[in-house]
Design a protein around this nucleic acid. Structure first.
Length: 590
DNA sequence: GCCGTTTTCGGCCCGACTGTTTTCAGTCG
């Protein structure tokens, strides 16, 4: 039986948590399953393998009971308790609980009292007016349920295959920044910031959180509700409102007085695990943290925090950058007495060279010189031109003969343009057998080669891992590009044992790329952190196919690096050219 | 169901909004 991937295991735990919730389990037990699911999804190594090795309880959130359930899943292909609960509750019932406003308690009552067991039978019952007579329901609840079903069905038909409803970060930030910019112009606005997962630079975003400080919240909330971007206002109160944009994103606005803004920003930046851990630690010291301030049991007074720094300081922590607030050990590190300290995170300004871009020689839109001048303007000291290689699939093929010519062109441009080192490079395809698609002799003529998988994604994990490790061991392959091939929200990673590839890179001195392309961000944050901890050199690139993305894509690669806790020292292309040149595998002849 | 520099048992963040209620449960983030 093929092993379960981490995301498959996480889905099983989520399902079981949902089933237990329907079954009336206490909330903490349900939360334990959801926390475990997140721990599994965030794990940098195979949870199936960890389970077999008897080490899975090393993951925070997995205890003896879940270990037993994991063993059952791996040995029998399913978890017995899940099998039993699926018998008890029809699949349509779980689907019903995913409707906004309908939770497990009321869904179960609809099932038991009306026999409603799917979106379809729910819609029928609502249309027949059978729901409004139930105790605790009413005519409005019935109408809202019908509306929710109809919307879910419409969304499903519209976005066939789209699934999660999450939006890739660059698009979400585009919408969010527009809203923030407009609100900032309002006379009642003192501060307006984007919060939530968009501020943490997550891969994708479910909805936008906007927080504001104002002496006149009502005026600002009114202005928000009338923004051009807003299609419909959902709920609204004295402290904020929720609305949906024409682009279909849900946006929350919250407003407090300026002297509470730090607490609000901290609260709505999250993530949930970070905030819960922060608050639990505070409770042990008699402090209660909310978005309005910090209540001290001893004095009965609430400390108002104008800045996030005030919040963290009052609780005994150093300031924690938003990208680190994922509940991955950042609070322990940030503790002012006894914490190990937080890393000094890499910034945009640290990057000294770009190592992955394309020109018209393959599928890029601009010429070598255009890219060179753009990189120079960004302050880069070096730029590697890395067009796709000889095997087909990417517009122009760069045959070996054409690569020889391209190397000459790059060298000529390098002589002609002052102030930047232009490197003759290639993004070499890793063929299914693990070999590159240029000869060693040709690869040796390059200054830099980054190798990536672009074909035959469907190999099994063992074969794919061997394929990539073979490339890692090649003497003229300096780095591996976009290791897992995932496209955020559209294509899952291919099956590859990232841990083994990291080990091979550490052994051979091969670098691993964080491809900053906004729909890739591959390595992801978890893998990049594991690679750097294993001593692998990381490079942060844009994979630009045109001049514009050399600058616009950079923040996304850097954000992933920051989410991976990386310092400038751990990223090779923060080094000046002479130092970087010496780090390349081809330079030290391994 | 997890977890432990006050606990191996007894805790487990905090508040807003909605709709149905005569004081609150359910849902959400």
């Amino acid at each position: 039986m093929p092993d379960f991937t981490n995301s498959e295991i996480a889905a099983r735990f989520e399902e079981l948590g949902d089933l237990y919730e329907l079954d009336g389990a206490i909330v903490h037990r349900v939360v334990a399953y959801r926390n475990a699911a997140k721990a599994v999804r965030d794990a940098s190594t195979s949870v199936a393998a960890l389970t077999r090795a008897g080490r899975v309880t090393e993951l925070s959130g997995i205890g003896a009971t879940l270990e037993t359930k994991l063993q059952a899943l791996l040995e029998q292909g399913d978890i017995p308790q899940a099998v039993a609960l699926r018998e008890k509750f029809p699949a349509g019932l779980l689907e019903m609980t995913r409707l906004p406003g309908l939770g497990p308690k009321r869904a179960r009552r609809l099932y038991e009292e009306l026999g409603v067991d799917s979106l379809e039978t729910l819609a029928t019952a609502a249309r027949q007016g059978r729901i409004q007579d139930l105790r605790g329901f009413g005519a409005r609840a019935e109408a809202k349920l019908l509306e929710a079903v109809e919307r879910a069905v419409a969304d499903d038909e519209e976005g066939a295959g789209a699934g999660s409803g999450r939006v890739v970060l660059d698009r979400a930030r585009g919408i969010g920044e527009q809203i923030v910019a407009t609100l900032r112009e309002h006379p009642a606005a003192v501060r307006v910031e984007l919060a939530g997962s968009a501020r943490r630079w997550a891969d994708s975003v479910k909805d936008l959180d906007v927080v504001a400080a104002s002496e006149d919240p009502e005026a600002l909330i009114d202005a928000f509700k009338q923004l051009d971007q807003i299609e419909v206002v959902g709920s609204s109160g004295e402290a904020g409102a929720r609305a949906r944009t024409h682009s279909g994103m849900s946006v929350d606005l919250k407003v407090v007085a300026p002297d509470q803004f730090g607490s609000l920003l901290q609260h709505f930046t999250g993530n949930k695990q970070h905030n819960v851990a922060l608050r639990e630690a505070a409770v042990k010291r008699g402090l209660h943290v909310s978005e309005y301030g910090i209540l001290d049991d001893a004095t009965g007074e609430t400390l108002r925090c104008a800045t996030e720094d005030d919040v963290y300081k009052a609780l005994g922590y150093a300031y924690i950058e938003p990208e680190l607030r994922e509940g991955r050990g950042e609070l322990h590190a940030a503790a002012l007495n006894g914490g190990g300290g937080l890393p000094r995170l890499i910034t945009l300004a640290d990057l000294k060279g770009e190592l992955h871009c394309h020109t018209t020689a393959s599928d890029g839109k601009d010429e070598i010189e255009d890219m060179a001048y753009a990189a120079l303007e960004l302050g880069y000291e070096y730029l590697a031109i890395t067009d796709h290689s000889a095997t087909h699939g990417f517009g122009n093929e760069v045959s070996p003969e054409r690569l020889e010519e391209q190397i000459e062109r790059i060298h000529a441009a390098n002589r002609a343009i002052d102030g930047i080192e232009l490197l003759a490079g290639s993004e070499v395809n890793i063929l299914p057998d693990g070999s590159p698609d240029y000869s060693d002799e040709l690869l040796a003529k390059l200054d830099w080669a980054i190798a990536s998988v672009h074909t035959s994604f469907a190999m099994d994990e063992r074969a794919m891992t061997e394929r990539i490790v073979a490339a890692v061991e090649h003497p003229y392959i300096d780095a591996i590009g976009h290791l897992t091939g995932r496209k955020i929200e559209t294509r899952p990673p291919y099956a590859v044992d990232v841990e083994r590839v990291i080990e091979a890179c550490a052994r051979t001195g091969t670098m691993l790329e964080i491809n900053g392309s906004t729909n890739r961000r591959d390595l992801n944050d978890v893998h990049a952190r594991a690679a750097a901890e294993a001593g692998v050199w990381i490079i942060v690139t844009t994979d630009s196919h045109r001049v514009a993305t050399l600058s616009t894509t950079r923040p996304y690669g850097i954000a992933t690096a920051r989410r991976a806790w990386l310092t400038a020292e751990q990223v090779a292309n923060t080094r000046p050219w002479a130092e970087f040149a010496a780090l390349r595998k081809r330079a030290h002849g391994r």
